[in-house]
């Protein structure tokens, strides 16, 4: 399989995931998106193994390792900070001191699980952003986008 074919499959899987998420919300069945997500990841994993061009070598592995390490170094601090705040909140301390608290705007009532889900997604988004940022930084450092005349 060529690398471009993989990217097409990747795009199709992302579209299918969006559809599955919409269906999950509409039908109030979280299992749909959960199963679809695992299937999507499995399909992408299998498809990636079928790519014939060399895509991973020691330099790309080094870039991935360094980016993952830096991401973890920052992410655990953020995650721990938020967890400590949540624990304090759960044990009775208000998240915002009462005299600072603004009037609550009219918002969707997500409930505890909904808020937890949104917070987890935000944290996951942060982790992805950190990883992509560090990956670009190290890729640039190790000459990923250099070009040369032959």
């Amino acid at each position: 399989m060529k690398r471009n074919t993989f990217y097409i499959i990747f795009g199709l899987v992302v579209l299918a995931e969006v559809l599955a998420f919409w269906l999950s919300v509409e039908l109030l069945t979280p299992l749909i998106i959960q199963v679809a997500f695992i299937l999507g990841v499995a399909i992408l994993y299998l498809a990636r193994r079928k790519i014939e061009d060399v895509i991973d070598d020691e330099r790309s592995v080094l870039i991935t390792q360094k980016a993952a390490m830096r991401t973890l170094e920052i992410f655990w601090v953020v995650f721990f900070t938020i967890s400590l705040g949540s624990a304090a909140w759960g044990l009775g301390a208000p998240m915002i001191p009462p005299h600072w608290r603004p009037e609550p705007p009219e918002t969707l009532n997500l409930g505890f699980l909904g808020r937890l889900g949104v917070m987890q997604m935000a944290l996951l988004g942060l982790m992805i952003l950190l990883y992509v940022g560090f990956r670009m930084y190290y890729a640039r450092q190790y000459g990923e986008w250099e070009d040369d005349e032959e």
Partner: peptide, 20 residues
């Protein structure tokens, strides 16, 4: 068995290859 970018990065001194 490596990518062209790796050869280019080594040639330009941006990356030192493994001993292997």
């Amino acid at each position: 068995g490596v990518t062209r970018q790796t050869i280019l990065a080594i040639e330009k001194g941006k990356y030192d290859p493994s001993l292997e």
